[in-house]
């Protein structure tokens, strides 16, 4: 956020640098069941983001001391490939990845019936292959498909979506330039059926009204993305002969 520049992110016609309207999502494509070995898997292309996700489990949790007697633990690992960004990222989790893995794990746990699988772990591996801002919300969206693909009982799918502020205007789904030079970003994860909020972060500078508008935008878009998720799931299971 907030690198100062003369770059105009919204033109005279009110369009963004990639030609989108303020409340328009980037193109999204999802596919379920893309990996052979994983219990569940899914792939997403969201704007310039390419993210692949695998789910393993529920399986006996190791090391043993992390086991919980009354429920499964959900361990998401968010990871960026070294070549996924302009400047090579050193392999292994940095502090950002550690934080994102934590909040994503917590968000995913909110929909999973963890009490059905005591002493196990449900491991969710989120690999960002190509990054273009909004990777955590795209990662949650696709992780939720991989969990469904693994047959893990959930009370809802979960949809990630972000909104933010660029050039003083509240917009949906920031791309990389908008994220770098914009004024605020609000990543959210929403349970589309009940509209509960499972992940909420924000950084930048927004008035109360702007933040409210951003949240409204993201919550509305979540319903659109939810429909795409359902389509992607149906597609896999209707193709089986």
């Amino acid at each position: 956020m907030g690198i100062k520049s003369d770059i105009r992110l919204i033109d005279d016609n009110g369009l963004r640098i990639d030609g989108r309207l303020p409340n328009q999502l980037r193109p999204i494509k999802m596919e379920v069941g893309v990996l052979e070995r994983a219990d569940g898997s899914a792939y997403i292309e969201w704007g310039g983001n390419k993210i692949i996700t695998a789910v393993y489990g529920p399986r006996e949790a190791y090391p043993k001391h992390v086991q919980e007697a009354e429920k499964a633990i959900v361990r998401a690992r968010y990871s960026m490939a070294p070549f996924s960004v302009d400047e090579r990222k050193r392999p292994g989790p940095d502090r950002r990845a550690v934080e994102l893995s934590k909040v994503i794990s917590e968000a995913l746990e909110s929909v999973i019936f963890v009490e059905k699988y005591p002493r196990t772990s449900i491991d969710v591996y989120i690999e960002v292959l190509q990054a273009d801002a909004g990777t955590r919300v795209a990662g949650i969206t696709v992780a939720s498909l991989a969990l469904a693909d693994a047959g893990i009982p959930m009370r809802d799918l979960i949809v990630g979506c972000a909104a933010g502020k660029i050039d003083g205007v509240v917009v949906l789904d920031l791309n990389k330039e908008e994220d770098n030079f914009g004024e605020a970003d609000v990543p959210m994860a929403i349970l589309p059926r009940t509209k509960e909020i499972a992940l909420l972060q924000m950084d930048g500078d927004m008035s109360y009204d702007e933040l409210k508008t951003a949240m409204d935008m993201a919550m509305e878009a979540a319903q659109t993305i939810y429909k795409m998720q359902i389509e992607a799931l149906k597609k896999k299971y209707t193709e089986v002969v």
Partner: peptide, 20 residues
């Protein structure tokens, strides 16, 4: 009175009204 940062944690959820 501007908002600069938010962080939600733990595996429960908030409603929209609760957040406001």
């Amino acid at each position: 009175g501007h908002i600069n940062a938010m962080q939600k944690g733990l595996s429960g959820t908030f409603t929209y009204e609760e957040v406001q």
